[in-house]
Design a protein around this nucleic acid. Sequence first.
DNA 1: CGTTAGCACTCAATTGCTGCGAGTGCTAAC
DNA 2: GTTAGCACTCGCAGCAATTGAGTGCTAACG
Lengths: 349, 349
Amino acid sequence: MELDSRKKAILYAIIENYQETGEPVGSRTISKLEHFKFSPATIRNEMADLEEMGLIVQPHTSAGRIPTDKGYRLYVDKMLEEQKEAKKDIPALPMADLLSKRIDRVEELLVKMAQILASNTNYTTMVTGPHYRKNKLKFLQLSSMTDGKILAVVVLEGNMVKNHILDVGETLDPQELLNLNFLLNNRLNGLSMEEINLGLISSMKEEAGAHSQVVLQILDAVAETFAQEETYPIYTSGAPNIFRYPELTGGDRASELISTLEEKKELGSAIGQLSKGGSQQDIQVFIGDEVPVDSMKDCSVVTATYSLGEGVQGKIGIIGPKRMNYQKVVDTLKDTMNQLDQVFAKPEE
Amino acid sequence: MELDSRKKAILYAIIENYQETGEPVGSRTISKLEHFKFSPATIRNEMADLEEMGLIVQPHTSAGRIPTDKGYRLYVDKMLEEQKEAKKDIPALPMADLLSKRIDRVEELLVKMAQILASNTNYTTMVTGPHYRKNKLKFLQLSSMTDGKILAVVVLEGNMVKNHILDVGETLDPQELLNLNFLLNNRLNGLSMEEINLGLISSMKEEAGAHSQVVLQILDAVAETFAQEETYPIYTSGAPNIFRYPELTGGDRASELISTLEEKKELGSAIGQLSKGGSQQDIQVFIGDEVPVDSMKDCSVVTATYSLGEGVQGKIGIIGPKRMNYQKVVDTLKDTMNQLDQVFAKPEE
DNA sequence: CGTTAGCACTCAATTGCTGCGAGTGCTAAC
DNA sequence: GTTAGCACTCGCAGCAATTGAGTGCTAACG
C-alpha cells in the first residue's frame, strides 16, 4: 500500500485534531477542515487504508479514529526531520532570569528548570542530577568544629561540593589540622576515584602518624562524595499535570503513575536505557510502548541531554500523554538546551 | 442528653469498624460484635441518640452510620487522655538504623524519616525542614578555586552548612585569602543576622581595603544562608498513599490533594498555623474542618514537633483520611520523637 | 422499664431495556 | 476518482423495575 501525500495529510490532520480534543476524530470533522475539499466518504476510504496500514485505529466500531503508536512515530519522525532545516522560533521561556542569577547549587537550578518546563508545557518533567564522568578531586578543606568534630568539605571537578561532619573523637589543634589539610591536598588533588589506591592510602596513613584514623575517615568521606555522584538524584515536577489528561487517569492508572514518579528509582534505571541509541541527536522521543517503564506505556516521553560544561551532564525528560504536543515539547527542550549551552559554554572556557 | 458508657462503647465500635471497612456501619454489624449482647433494635435506639447528639450521621436514609468530626474528636481526645497514663508499646520502627548512621546532612535524615513513616503508616507524610531560631554564625571558610572564583562555606550553629561559589573577578593569592578569612571570622563568628549591622560592615570594608567588594559578596552569601533557614523547605513522602482511600480520591479530589502536596507552599503557611495552640503537648490532631488547608478538609492531620537539639526544630505531619488509625499514628509519632530525642539529646550535651 | 421481635418504609445501587446519535462500510451513481 | 445515500454498529444517556441493607416505630415480653 502506498502512503501518498493525501493520506499523510489526513493522518496528520487526525493526529493534530486528536491532540486538541482528546476524542476520536471522524471523517466529517476532517472534511470540514480548511485544507480539505473532499467529502466525508472520500476521507473514509482513505482512513480505511490508513487503518489497514496500522497507522490509526477505532476504539470501537462506531467511533472515529485515533492514531496508533506507529502513526505517531511517523508524524514525529517527519517533524524531527523538518526541524533540522527550518528552525521555528517559539517564545523563549523565562529561563534567562534563572540562568543569569548566581547559581550556588546545581540542584537548585535543575529543580527550578523542571518547574518552569512543567508549568510551561503542562506535562510532567523529570530531571536527573548531573552525572560526573570520571570525576576528579579538586581539593578538600578541613575545619575544626566543636568537641572532636571536624568539617570536611570535598570539592570535585565541576564544582560539585559536599560537606561531611566527621566525629574524629580526638581534638586536633589548628596546626595539626593544617598539616593534615596540606598532606591530603598534596597527595589527592586531581586524582579520580580509581587513582586513589591502597598504596597511596597506606603511605598517607604512615605520614599522618597518630592521626591515621582521621585520614581514613576523610577518605571515607571522599569516597562517599564520589559514590553519591554515581547514584545521581532525580527531580520531578508537575506530576499533578497528568490529571489534565483523562486517558491517563482512568481507573487506577493515575495512582500507578504518581507512584512511579514518587519512587523515582525505576525512573533512574529507565533513564539509563533511554540514552542507548541517541548519541548523534540529543533529543529523543519515546511513544507508548517504546517507553521502558511499564506504568508509562500509555505515555510518551521526550528526553534531552543537558550539559553544564566540564563533562557534567544529565538527562531531562518530559512525560505526557501519547497525544502530547510533540512540536511544542521538542522546540521547548531545544530552546532550553541552547540557553543552557550559551550560559555554561562561555564562562567555562 | 446523657452520654453514658454504653453509648460511648457503641460510638467507639462504630468508629473502629468504619476505620477498617470505610463503609457506613449498621446496627446489625455492631450487635454481632463480641462485646455486645444487645439486639440490633436496642443498638438502633442508642444510635438514634448518638445522631441527635451530632456524633454520627447517615450519609443517606437507608445506610449505616459514620462518625462526624465531633464524634472523632471525642474518640481522639479520650485516646490522647489514656495515652498519658498507660503507654502502649508498639513495635519500634527501623528508625534506629537510620539514626545510628552518621548523618551528614539533616535534610537526608528528614527525607528518610518521612519515607519510613509514610510506608509504615500507609498515609502521607510531610516534614518541614528544621527551623533555626535566632541562629548564629559558627564560622566561615574561604578557599580559592579556579579563575577568580572562591568557595565560601558558611556554617551556622546547629551545623547547618551551606556552600557558595563566588565570582570575585580578581585572583586572590593564598595569603590575602587567609587574611580575609581571619578578618571575617574574627569579626563575625557567634553573631546572629541582626547583629551584623551596617557599622560592622563598613568597618570591615575599611579593613579589607582593596578587597572590600569581596567582603560584600561574602556577606551576601552569609545573608542568603540565614535567609534560607527562614524559608525552610518541606519534604513530602507517600503521596500516592491517598489512593488507598476512595473517599479522598472520588471526583477531582485526588488531583487537588496531590497538587497541594507538590506545591508545598500552602502547606508551609498552614504548618505555621498548626503550631498555634499546642505548646503544652507536642502531638496535635486536626480532624476534617479543623485542618487549615482547604483541599484537606476531608482529611485529618496529626502533627508533632521534632527537635534535633540546639534549638533546631521543625514539624512533622501525617496526612490521612478522617478515618485514619489515630491510635497507631499517634503512637508511631511519639515513638519516633522519643528515638530522635534519645539520639540527639545525649551527644549534644 | 429496658429490651426485643416484627414490620413497613426509604433509598442507593444494580440491572435491563430503549432510543439517540455519531460514525462507519458498502454500493451505486456521477 | 469522487460522492450521495443508506443500512448497520455500538457506546451512551435515560428510565423503570428490582434488590437489599438499614432504619424508625410499635407492640409485646420479662
